[in-house]
Design a protein around this nucleic acid. Structure first.
Lengths: 337, 337
DNA sequence: TGTTTTTATGGGATCGTTCCCATGCCTTTA
DNA sequence: TAAAGGCATGGGAACGATCCCATAAAAACA
């Protein structure tokens, strides 16, 4: 079933059918009715591939994320979807599993599909190697608007939507400093990723502003992506060493979960023996009332803002480069208020 | 840049370039080399739209889910992606927000995009109304393989991958019965959805098999999708009534979270004052050790199985209709073991 | 009433592939 | 040495839309 068939059934030419389907002006109301009746009767939908070939664009938006599982990226997708659902754009989703190889392949797929724009959380673009270089190069030559989500790229030329990692870490650490703690640790993720380094930077800055020295023995780094089990083990080791900080900054939700599992098992009481503040809400906090202060990143808003920014670039390609910082909310437990 | 341009640069015809790109036999090795050199040099990728139009299929797979947020559907997407990532298929994602209107629109989009197959979790197809009828009708006329995920449709003609809702609810309830409890309640979700009714059926069946009467005052129903806050309120009311069951079956994770929030706040001790068993793991259970028995649905496996089943239908369209039941694992807390 | 302008419609080229068919060359075989 | 077969290659129609241009009919104006 093509517009030719519809045209034949309605007794008009395919040009007229095309005009009717695209709401062109200069179509007689009676003709429009006649055509639409046939279209509805036959439940006709024009082929997106033929339209795309002819129009030279596809009305699709490519979304590249490291993963879909878990609620952070899930909610980003949710936010993107809620924004795009009332536009003509369809989502093409590629998950890279944090592998540069898959990220490159995803970009090739999007190129092949001639997507109108790209939303990207790169897991590789920040490194200094061939793959990372190729990713940035491909993006540059792509010639469609790109919005980076949550992670920037080296010498980024693109729009971006980020959570306020550095400021967030700063205010979180500041909350500890204001309480007068001096032995402050940090359990953070890989600093070769922008997200890890920004958070560490905020932490360091806060210490420095309050003239508190960094205690190397309380700085623990976890590779990306972190596994809760690894964090749990390292936490147990820290406790076994007998030397605990008074307070600690936890770099992300997985680290927080692993750390709490460790201290709870060893009988360390949070909010008394140690004060914890970190990134990301964990569901369990809402259910039981263990002291834990955290920065709530609004991941759905991250997705919404990114999608809206892309839509803006799509309708106004010459617009200036934009960066959005999505503020996180600091939730302080009662022992830190 | 098209295959014509590549052909000109390589000094061959576009037919030959097409043959090279599609790994056809009967191409001279030297010619193949010559063409590939130009292709690599120009970083050429053929247009998916032109290929699709010519071949009459698009190598895309449509995924329709109620939502992407949260870990259940996120992990389903994750499983689908991991299965499809090494195939030529690309994922077209549509989230319906549990609205029939959007589900119908999603199906139209997939029709327009000429997807090769569909993975669908319908939030409406089970009802007896015009929208639900239209959804089933559209699927029937679509003429591509369809695999339903987690929720069946009325008089389903399609492949499906389901978690063992009925059996799961049965064995969960049985665990309570084996402990000798007689006052057993259930907090379940909307029974007009297949998932809700299956679970309720399993619960009822277990009671009946053990000759325990159903106590209507302990059967609470929550609309779909449930909000934790609503569950929390209803739980508080139940507690206020002063009449609590000895044990309760909780229909899903949101219900479990809301219920626990309620009882913990009112000082009811789980595993002592009341025994709870339900569907879906909650992260907090792994961190603190409150007694809660649950069925762990393997949502990633659900996605993987569905995608694999679709791939099978795609390579062998005449195959028989298949249904897969993905077993859940019953995790019993120490008070029920 | 004749000329110009506006409006509605149809015809055909085009987008970038695939794939069938034709052609010519090289090899094999009687 | 001529006929038959296989192999590498090129030419052109087809896929199903869009969109420009031509044209006919209707409306506006002198």
């Amino acid at each position: 079933m093509t517009i030719r068939d519809i045209a034949a059934l309605a007794g008009v030419s395919k040009s007229t059918v095309s005009r009717v389907l695209n709401n062109s002006p200069n179509v007689d109301e009676k003709t429009r009715e006649k055509v639409m009746r046939v279209v509805r009767e036959k439940d006709f939908i024009p082929s997106a591939m033929a339209q795309g070939l002819s129009r030279q664009y596809a009305n699709t938006i490519g979304v590249i994320l490291p993963e879909a599982g878990g609620s952070f990226f899930g909610n980003i997708i949710q936010g993107i979807n809620e924004t795009l659902i009332n536009t003509p754009y369809t989502i093409l989703l590629c998950c890279t599993e944090n592998k540069a190889e898959y990220e490159i392949r995803a970009l090739d797929t999007l190129r092949q599909q001639k997507v109108s724009g790209i939303l990207l959380t790169s897991s590789s673009g920040f490194y200094e190697n061939d793959d990372a270089y190729k990713i940035r190069q491909t993006l540059e030559n792509f010639n469609v608007p790109v919005v980076l989500i949550d992670r920037t790229l080296k010498s980024s030329k693109w729009d971006g939507v980020y959570s306020d990692n550095s400021t967030g870490a700063y205010v979180a650490t500041e909350a500890l400093l204001k309480k007068g703690f001096k032995k402050i640790g940090a359990y953070i993720s890989d600093t070769s990723l922008s997200i890890g380094s920004s958070r560490y930077k905020g932490f360091i800055q806060a210490l420095s502003d309050y003239h508190i020295p960094i205690m190397e023995e309380f700085i623990i780094t976890e590779k990306y992506p972190a596994s809760m089990q690894d964090v749990y083990w390292k936490t147990c080791e820290l406790i076994k060493s007998g030397n605990l900080p008074e307070a600690i900054f936890l770099g992300n939700g997985i680290i927080a979960n692993g750390f709490y599992k460790g201290i709870l098992e060893k009988g360390i009481v949070p909010g008394k023996d140690i004060h914890c503040v970190g990134f990301d809400y964990s569901e369990f906090l809402d259910i039981i009332n263990l002291p834990y202060s955290y920065l709530e990143r609004n991941s759905k808003l991250l997705g919404e803002t990114a999608a809206n920014s892309l839509l803006k670039s799509l309708s106004n390609p010459s617009g200036l480069r934009q960066e959005y910082i999505i503020p996180s909310t600091l939730h302080l437990d009662k022992t830190l208020q």
